[in-house]
């Protein structure tokens, strides 16, 4: 469904992504992991067309995203830090976003109710706390029943109750066969929500396979220790695990 081909991105002299290839298929859920600054958010922004790669192309549902904008109506995106205009109210923000996608008439309002956002619709965005902003971002990402859900650190800053609500919602959408892409540093959460692990290190794909095979390869029972082992290997720059896994 999403295919990134030979993506290369530099910010000034810093090479963020080097000859980057990845495929995301419909109906699967992916955990995108990597140390800080490894290029996770840049990859997501490239898929969304917010950052333009130096070379390479991204295809979403078979179409190149270069100069294309309509494909974004199939993507629900929850940013790492939701930044919204200050003066706008929550209700206005929702109706504005609905206005931007005139083709979609039926909205998924589950999260708005579950988070109690419907009761504070007339609050201006700048008065909201970080957690409430995050709730608004989540509600927006799911609102349009998009085929592809990209969630950049979805639970950061949410209270435990909201985290549970959001996780249940993600599971529900995953089970309806949507493509879900999550970045997070909370490993237990990724273990629970996703079945594929992608580990990025210094702008290269270091590991890309199912979580079960990750556990097999590393010989660890627990996901978190398996990832810790993977990080160790990536630091030692040992042989690439991706090669091993496909033998």
């Amino acid at each position: 469904m999403i295919s990134a081909q030979q993506i290369h991105k530099k910010f000034g002299k810093l090479e963020v992504l080097k000859d980057f290839n990845l495929e995301f298929d419909a109906g699967k859920s992916y955990a995108l992991m990597g140390p800080n600054g490894s290029g996770k958010t840049t990859l997501i922004k490239i898929i969304l067309g917010m950052v333009i790669p130096n070379t390479g192309e991204v295809f979403v549902q078979g179409e190149s995203i270069k100069g294309n904008f309509a494909y974004r109506s199939n993507i629900g995106y929850m940013p790492q830090i939701g930044r919204y205009p200050d003066n706008i109210r929550i209700g206005q923000l929702f109706s504005m976003m609905q206005d931007m996608r005139p083709g979609i008439k039926e909205y998924d309002l589950d999260l708005i109710e579950a988070f109690g956002l419907d009761k504070i619709m007339d609050k201006p965005m700048h008065t909201l706390s970080g957690g409430t902003r995050q709730k608004v971002s989540a509600a927006l990402a799911f609102m349009f029943r998009a085929e592809i859900l990209i969630l950049d650190e979805p639970t950061a800053g949410l209270d435990p109750m909201a985290v549970e609500t959001l996780k249940n919602k993600i599971k529900k959408e995953r089970d309806t066969g949507k493509l879900i892409l999550i970045t997070s540093h909370i490993l237990s959460e990724l273990d629970e929500l996703t079945d594929h692990a992608i580990y990025i290190n210094e702008g290269e794909v270091f590991f890309n396979d199912t979580i079960n095979s990750l556990k097999d390869i590393t010989g660890e029972e627990k996901f978190s220790t398996a990832i810790a082992r993977l990080m160790e290997w990536s630091l030692k720059k040992k042989k690439k695990i991706t090669d091993l896994s496909h033998v």
Binding site: M50, S73, R83, Y84, P85, M97, M100
Partner: peptide
């Protein structure tokens, strides 16, 4: 000041 709005819009199905 409107950079937030711009970023928000760029993730939506609208032309740059």
């Amino acid at each position: 000041n409107n950079l937030e709005f711009t970023e928000l819009m760029l993730a939506q199905p609208v032309k740059r």
